[in-house]
Write a protein that binds this DNA or RNA. Structure first.
Length: 907
RNA sequence: GCCGCGGUGGUGGAAUUGGUAGACACGCUGGACUUAAAAUCCAGUGGUUGCAUAAACCGUGCCGGUUCAAUUCCGGCCCGCGGCACCA
């Protein structure tokens, strides 16, 4: 009888379902383990083989944890609101709900065939009114705390999807869903004050030490916290002030002009008559530019002069006020003080419009480039006296590049040394000073000019990235902004002259505060979360607009506000959602005063439902609360969360925000929702591209399961490579894992007892698999099982060891393991058995191979007992012919012995 | 440009408190079985020199360094991937 995967897999899937083997109990007598997959979006395309990779990994872990005695929660559900479902429905002319229901059925069937432990009695669906009741409830709590507010600021608008978007919904400046260029459009919208939580979202990242560093880093950058100061600049002949944010208050004395964003509220007030026309034209142009155009033109700065002047508060100098679109309205105060000597953007702008550049920090180091075909080592060592020397062999023909950074106080000695040792101090010398912009084609230093001996063109040097600096006495030729905050000394800054910029910042802020012209300040890149969409398929925002009371939340007892049926759910395009057209739904009474009022017709973004779904699995049928507080205390936080890295700055920030809010109002017990996070690497198609209908390279798991079986698919996906790394699908590799399972199926080399060798390889295998699953190294876990199987096929083993092996195999290949387990005479499911322990003492082997090295090279290998004495090893080593050959009768200077590993002889 | 991650055979990848580089698997080559093919089984498989299952040398992106010993540590650079991007 061959390995009939079809029969085995469908039999066991039915049996497990019938026995409710994976139903999770709320009994709190066992330690809990909550393992979670990012729930899928049930799209019309169905699953491809890449989708289940993460689910297989959590399933393997869940099964091992069950067998290790944990109460495991491993649920699954559907994230089914949002644009993709709606667009799919419009395209296929069906109601989104109908499409979603159909898709869920397909997904569920496909997932079922892979043999997961999901407890479907806890299934959640974000589009179920009993579910989104609590999404709406949470929104109302935020509204009550002032964290949900209406705003009329211009937002990002996608003309194709016809809805407003949050900044997180952009990809390369385009709509993430449809790829359209987006516009700025003023539109009334609901916004969540996530910035109130910015510091907590940032600082609590430190506690998430079981998250990938890359995700924590991305969130940190996304929040983009900057410390600095706010400084007030008076406008000349005008009563108002302009406030700016700067991270470099130490450069305040170098502020030679100011720049406002075109949208800044003061612009129209302070612009003088003669500049008005140009101003209006520039503002119009700026508003027409898409975000993409604004950033694409990065290098080409543009702006116009307002005609007005401000007073630099620290030195009372009058400085012109410009507007330019390189200053963003959405960051800081929407206005900057421009310090062209120490900010590259300001520098570029100043160069273009011929504005003053005043350096206020003098660099402490200059850098030189020395080119020499072969510089003697001794000379390099000498050079190090003057600063840092980097050796770069860039091009064979050119020999070595030696870049020398010199401390300025050692500069005369350095120059003398160079002339004495290396350079011809003539016009044909060899020392170069250049800037990274490549605008010089000759060297400038201390009044001396050198040019290169063999006349290679400057362009050739430029491509090697020659670096820069500003020589002390050449400050009038500032070639680029000097922005290094860790290097330099302040000048032109009155009482702060001579200080180091970093240390001066605090003193300057104190002084600004004393003088009443500025204060310490923090600002964030993160913006408040635009939370309304002008589309149909989402949770209605539970607000009523009353002509007397304003925005009033719906009474909690009236929740959910059910999404009404609508004839036409296509977007209206007017900036209003399709809900606005349903009069008998829109018209209602104010929950507060009872007068006629209108419902809010915007809906929530897709992320709303996914913010908190993991909490609902804990208590999916609760009618009185989002989640029972005591149950939540037991099950939360999620011990292990697995999903794609693409959610790093959206779902995973939104969720943390939402969770912290729920914590603040006492709805949940813990500050952070997810203890440990792991990213799944994508599975690419065999051709190396993403699997997509478009390329015709999609592999459907159903086909694979038909031909090779779910167990082969599971083992293969775990074996493909490191779990978090992208790999190409390879059907030949899949055949390899199938062969591995067949080998197990056919195994019949039984023995009564076990040899030492069999025991050793068994315990090694158990140890490796146990540890590797815990640490998500599934590929090496599978490899350990293969080594074990290869060995017992060769030497045989007892039934007992084989049964224990089946336990270890069972999380990976549950159907096959269960089948062979029962065939071997067991009555109860293998998943109710106890995970095997390994015995460290059994792993020890009788003899080990010890390596003998001579001068670090392996010359011989000897078989010895693990506990052999050092003296004995030496004796054996020196007796070896091979070793003798390399000793050539020489005396050994030193002998290094590493127990159990090697003996190294140095001669 | 900035931040993060990575670079190991023909391929996916193993091995890092520095200690035998290439586990395991795929592919390939040769052989067995077969009328033949597929499947299966056995053997070989980093490179160079070599009759060799003898031996030596080279080899973990590049250039240097530390060390008895470096894929692993240090300095510099190149390339690839991901994120951010006029963030003051």
């Amino acid at each position: 009888m061959g390995y009939n995967h079809k029969k085995i897999e469908s039999n066991w899937q039915k049996k497990w379902e019938k026995d409710q083997l994976y139903k999770t109990s709320d009994d709190q007598d066992k330690p809990k383990y909550y393992i979670l997959d990012m729930f899928p979006y049930p799209s019309g395309a169905g699953l491809h083989v890449g989708h289940p990779k993460g689910y297989i990994a959590t399933d393997v872990t869940a099964r091992m944890k069950m067998m290790q005695g944990y109460n495991v929660l491993h649920p699954m559900g559907w994230d089914a609101f949002g644009l993709p479902a709606e667009n799919y429905a419009i395209k296929n002319k069906v109601h989104p709900r109908v499409a979603v229901e159909k898709n869920i059925k397909v997904f569920k069937k496909q997932l079922g065939r892979i043999g997961f432990t999901h407890d479907w009695s806890r299934e959640v669906n974000t589009t179920d009114p009993d579910y989104y009741k609590w999404t709406q409830w949470a929104f109302i709590q935020m509204f009550k705390k002032g964290l949900a507010y209406e705003s009329d600021e211009p937002i990002i608008w996608c003309p194709s999807c016809q809805t407003g978007l949050a900044m997180e919904d952009l990809e390369d400046g385009k709509c993430e869903r449809c790829g359209s260029d987006v516009e700025r459009k003023p539109l009334r919208q609901w916004v969540l004050k996530i910035t109130d939580y910015a510091d907590r979202l940032l600082f609590d990242l430190d506690s998430l030490d079981k998250w990938p560093d890359s995700i924590r880093e991305m969130q940190k950058n996304w929040i983009g916290r900057s410390e600095g100061a706010k400084v007030k600049f008076e406008v000349r002949n005008w009563k108002s002030e302009i406030e700016v944010f700067t991270t470099r208050p130490d450069t305040l004395f170098g502020a030679t002009f100011m720049v406002l964003s075109p949208e800044h509220e003061l612009v129209n007030k302070i612009t003088t008559k003669e500049n008005e026309a140009a101003m209006i034209k520039y503002q119009e142009e700026a508003s027409k530019k898409s975000d993409l155009e604004r950033t694409e033109l990065q290098k080409d700065k543009s702006g116009v002069f307002t005609g007005a002047y401000a007073i630099n508060p620290v030195n009372k100098k009058e400085i012109p006020i410009w507007i330019a679109d390189y200053v963003l309205a959405s960051y800081g105060t929407g206005a900057i003080m421009a310090v062209p000597a120490h900010d590259q953007r300001d520098y570029d702008f100043a160069k273009k419009y011929k504005l003053d550049i005043v350096p206020v920090v003098l660099p402490d180091k200059a850098s030189y480039l020395v080119i020499e075909k072969s510089l003697p080592q001794s000379l390099v060592k000498d050079l190090q006296k003057y600063g840092k020397v980097n050796v770069e062999k860039i091009d064979k023909d050119w020999g070595g590049f030696y870049r020398v950074e010199v401390e300025l106080d050692k500069e005369p000695e350095f120059m003398k040394f160079m002339e004495d040792n290396l350079l011809e101090s003539s016009d044909d010398g060899g020392a170069w000073y250049t800037d990274s912009m490549g605008t010089t084609d000759h060297a400038i230093f201390s009044g001396k000019t050198f040019s290169i001996k063999d006349k290679k063109s400057f362009e050739e040097f430029k491509k090697y990235g020659i670096s820069l600096s500003i020589p002390k006495d050449q400050l009038d030729i500032v070639l680029e902004a000097f922005t290094d905050i860790d290097n330099g000394t302040m000048i032109n800054s009155q009482q702060f002259d001579g200080q180091k910029p970093k240390e001066a910042i605090k003193k300057i802020i104190d002084w600004l505060e004393k003088e009443g012209i500025g204060e310490k300040a923090v600002t964030y890149r993160l913006q408040d979360w635009v939370f309304s969409r002008q589309r149909y398929w989402g949770e209605p925002i539970p607000i009523v607009h009353c002509p007397k009371c304003g925005a009033v939340p719906v009474d909690e007892k009236d929740l959910p506000v059910v999404l009404p049926e609508v004839k036409n759910y296509e977007p209206s395009g007017t900036g209003e959602s399709p809900l606005a057209g349903i009069d008998d739904w829109v018209n209602t009474q104010c929950p507060k005063c009872g007068v006629d009022a209108k419902r809010e017709t915007n809906t929530m973004p897709q992320w709303a439902g996914s913010n908190w779904y993991y909490l609902r699995y804990i208590d999916p049928d609760n009618k009185d609360a989002l989640v029972d507080y005591e149950k939540e205390k037991y099950w939360s936080p999620v011990d292990f969360y697995v999903g794609g890295a693409e959610h790093a700055t959206r779902h995973l920030i939104y969720s943390r925000f939402w969770h912290k809010f729920l914590f603040d109002i006492g709805a949940v017990n813990y500050q952070e929702p997810f203890t440990r996070l792991q990213n799944v690497g994508l599975i690419m198609a065999e051709d190396g591209r993403k699997m997509s209908k478009r390329w015709g390279n999609v592999i459907n798991p159903d086909d694979i399961i038909d031909e090779y079986g779910a167990d082969s698919l599971r083992v293969y996906e775990m074996f493909m490579g490191p779990f978090d790394q992208a790999v190409n699908w390879d059907t030949n590799g899949l055949r390899g894992t199938r062969k591995f399972l067949e080998k197990i199926f056919k195994f019949d080399k039984w023995q009564d007892g076990d040899s030492k060798e069999a025991k050793t390889v068994y315990h090694q295998m158990v140890k490796k698999v146990t540890n590797d699953v815990e640490n998500l190294r599934f590929n090496t876990a599978v490899s350990a099982m293969m080594i074990f199987v290869n060995k017992i096929v060769e030497i045989g083993c007892s039934k007992e060891i084989f049964q224990n092996f089946l336990k270890v195999l069972s999380p990976f290949a549950p159907h096959l393991a269960e089948e062979l387990w029962v065939k071997s005479g067991k009555d109860e499911s293998i998943f109710l058995s106890k995970w095997p322990e390994y015995d460290e003492s059994q792993i020890q082997v009788d003899t080990i191979q010890l390596v003998i090295q001579v001068n670090g090279k392996v010359r011989d290998k000897i078989q010895v007992e693990p506990e052999i004495a050092e003296a004995e090893v030496k004796k054996l080593a020196l007796a070896s012919e091979k070793v003798q050959k390399f000793l050539e009768g020489k005396e050994s200077k030193k002998i290094i012995y590493v127990k159990g590993k090697l003996l190294s002889i140095v001669v």
